[in-house]
Lab assay of single mutants.
Amino acid sequence: SLSVDNKKFWATVESSEHSFEVPIYAETLDEALELAEWQYVPAGFEVTRVRPCVAP
């Protein structure tokens, strides 16, 4: 099958004044980091952490 098993990760994104967490959907932690950097670094943010979303 061609289905992709995307998992939810939380990326911590920082600017000079703010820090916030955004959801990233990817297959692996490395891919989540790449996606977060691709989305947020060009906008002037720094991705400081990516972690798996742990269900309660």
Score class of each variant (00 low, 15 high):
T48I: 14
E27Y: 10
E37I: 15
W38S: 14
P56K: 04
A26V: 02
S3E: 07
T48M: 06
I24L: 04
V54Y: 13
S3H: 12
A43D: 09
K7A: 09
V54D: 12
E34T: 13
E14H: 11
T48P: 04
T28K: 03
L2Y: 09
V13T: 01
R51Y: 13
P42K: 07
T48W: 03
A26K: 00
R51Q: 08
E31H: 11
W10G: 02
A36D: 00
A32P: 00
H18F: 00
V50S: 00
I24D: 00
L35D: 02
K8E: 05
Y25F: 10
A11G: 03
K7I: 11
P23V: 15
H18W: 08
T12P: 01
V13Y: 05
E14M: 13
R51D: 06
S16N: 11
W10Y: 07
T12E: 02
E37R: 13
Y40L: 04
T12W: 06
F9I: 01
E31L: 13
E14F: 07
D30S: 14
E17I: 07
W38G: 13
D5E: 10
Y40R: 07
S19R: 11
S3F: 08
S16F: 10
S1G: 09
A11Y: 02
R49A: 15
A11L: 06
R49K: 15
L33I: 13
D5I: 12
S19D: 03
D30Q: 15
S19N: 05
T28Q: 03
D5W: 11
L35G: 02
E17C: 09
F45G: 03
F45C: 06
E21M: 06
V50K: 00
V13W: 02
N6V: 15
V4K: 13
Y25I: 05
E27Q: 14
R51I: 08
P23F: 12
Y40K: 01
F9R: 00
S3M: 11
W10A: 03
D5N: 14
E37H: 09
R49G: 15
A43S: 08
I24N: 00
L35S: 05
S19V: 12
A36L: 07
E46F: 08
P56C: 07
A32Y: 02
V50M: 04
K8D: 02
F9G: 01
F20S: 02
I24T: 00
W10I: 12
W10V: 08
A11S: 02
P56E: 10
S16C: 08
E21A: 04
P52M: 09
A55C: 13
P56Q: 12
F45P: 01
V4Y: 10
Y25P: 02
A26L: 01
W38T: 13
F9A: 00
P42G: 08
V47R: 00
G44H: 01
E34A: 15
P42A: 10
T28I: 02
V13A: 02
V4C: 15
D30F: 09
K7N: 08
E17G: 11
R49L: 15
C53L: 04
F9H: 02
A36M: 04
V4D: 06
G44Y: 02
S15Q: 06
V54F: 12
W10E: 00
N6K: 15
E27R: 11
E17F: 12
T28A: 02
A11E: 01
P23R: 05
S15C: 12
V4I: 13
S3Y: 09
K8W: 15
A32C: 06
E21G: 06
F45V: 02
W10R: 01
E21Q: 08
V13C: 05
K8P: 05
T12L: 13
V22Y: 06
L29T: 04
V54H: 09
N6M: 14
H18D: 09
R49F: 15
T48V: 14
V50T: 02
C53F: 06
I24M: 03
S15M: 08
P52H: 08
E21Y: 06
L33F: 12
E27N: 11
D5L: 14
Y40E: 04
T48N: 04
L2R: 01
L2V: 12
K7Q: 08
A32R: 01
W38N: 13
I24H: 00
A11D: 00
H18R: 09
T28G: 05
R49N: 15
E21I: 09
F20L: 05
S15V: 04
Q39S: 07
P23Q: 08
G44P: 00
E34K: 15
E14T: 14
S16H: 10
D5Y: 12
D30H: 12
L2G: 11
P42W: 09
P23G: 06
W38Y: 12
N6H: 08
A36F: 04
S16G: 10
T12V: 05
C53G: 07
L2C: 15
A36W: 03
P52C: 05
R51C: 07
L2K: 05
C53W: 06
